[in-house]
Computed example of a mutant assay.
Amino acid sequence: MANSRSGDSVTERLVRVLETFDTDRTVQTATEIGRRARLPSSTAHRIVADLVDCGLLERDEEQRVRLGMRLWELAMRGSHALRLRQAALPFMERVQAHIREHTQLAVLENDETLFVERLSHPHAGANITRVAGRLPLHASSAGLVLLAYGTEELQERVLAGPLEAVSPETVTDPSRLRRILAGIRRDGAVVSPGTVETVSTGIAVPVREGRGQVIAALSAVLPYEASAPPAVEELRVAASGISAALGTHRP
């Protein structure tokens, strides 16, 4: 792709435009997109028009812009996340039937925890995570599992900081985090009271593929005072089932 005068490739500018959308900002004007993507107004309007023409963005009646259905369609084709979600959902539903709070599936993406599925009871407690939402790896039970089984390079990069405190109880001390990660590798699970929200406890276990590599984390979010062991066992059984399902549905 040709570069702009600033040195950015066309692809980089397209990605910056798409990244201006999130779960709280689903509709924008082309001018707002340009400002958030750090693009000249004329460039932003041109890119937005091109993306609308090919269906990756859509305009509403007020000429504001939102992500297009074609972008979702393309993302679903052959997606690793889609295959993982399809294998995981029956087992997540069984967990959810017992815990009746929140059950989540997360993967490692660009040194962050990316949540690809979540099931929640209508009367479940607090939980700030969302499907397609992200959290720092050290700041949730799922992220801690992904970090614990990540490469040494990943761990050193994350522990070098900065380590953001998402809640007053988020562990941000590198030495303490190293001990927590070692405990996860020893026990195959983590219980993290108050890590994301002070009223909740996160519990997570690893999900492995056929060769034993950890490819996801299965987690539950319970009220802070809830008993953790029953949920840990539910998650372990479900994670084993997901791993088996992935092994029987390889492409």
Rank of each mutant, 00 (worst) to 15 (best):
N3K: 14
R5L: 13
S6Q: 06
D8R: 15
D8Q: 14
D8A: 11
S9L: 01
T11V: 12
E12N: 03
R13G: 06
L14Q: 14
L14M: 13
R16S: 11
L18R: 11
E19N: 15
F21N: 03
T23A: 15
D24Q: 14
D24R: 14
D24K: 13
T26C: 07
Q28C: 04
T29Q: 07
T31V: 06
E32W: 04
I33G: 02
I33T: 03
G34K: 04
R36W: 08
R36T: 03
A37G: 07
R38A: 15
P40A: 09
P40V: 07
S42T: 07
T43H: 05
A44R: 07
H45V: 08
R46M: 09
V48C: 00
A49I: 02
A49T: 12
L51V: 02
G55L: 11
G55I: 10
R59C: 01
D60S: 03
D60M: 06
E61T: 13
L71Q: 02
L74Q: 05
G78L: 01
G78Q: 08
R83H: 15
R85C: 13
A88G: 01
A88C: 03
L89E: 14
F91E: 04
V95R: 03
V95K: 04
Q96T: 04
Q96K: 03
A97L: 05
A97F: 00
H102G: 07
Q104T: 14
A106F: 10
N110Q: 15
E112W: 05
P122K: 08
H123G: 06
P136Y: 08
L137H: 09
L137W: 05
S140C: 05
G143S: 12
V145D: 03
E152P: 00
E153D: 14
L154A: 02
A160G: 15
G161I: 07
G161T: 07
L163F: 08
E169Q: 12
S175W: 01
R176W: 01
R178F: 02
I180Y: 01
I180V: 15
A182Y: 11
G183T: 10
I184P: 03
R186N: 15
G188M: 10
V191S: 09
T195K: 01
V196S: 11
A204F: 09
P206C: 14
G210A: 08
R211D: 12
G212I: 05
G212H: 10
G212D: 07
I215Q: 10
I215P: 05
L218A: 08
S219H: 06
E225D: 14
A228I: 03
P229H: 12
P229L: 09
V232K: 11
E233K: 14
S240K: 11
G241Y: 10
G241H: 08
G241F: 09
S243Q: 00
A244K: 11
A244I: 02
A245C: 04
L246K: 06
L246V: 00
T248A: 11
T248L: 06
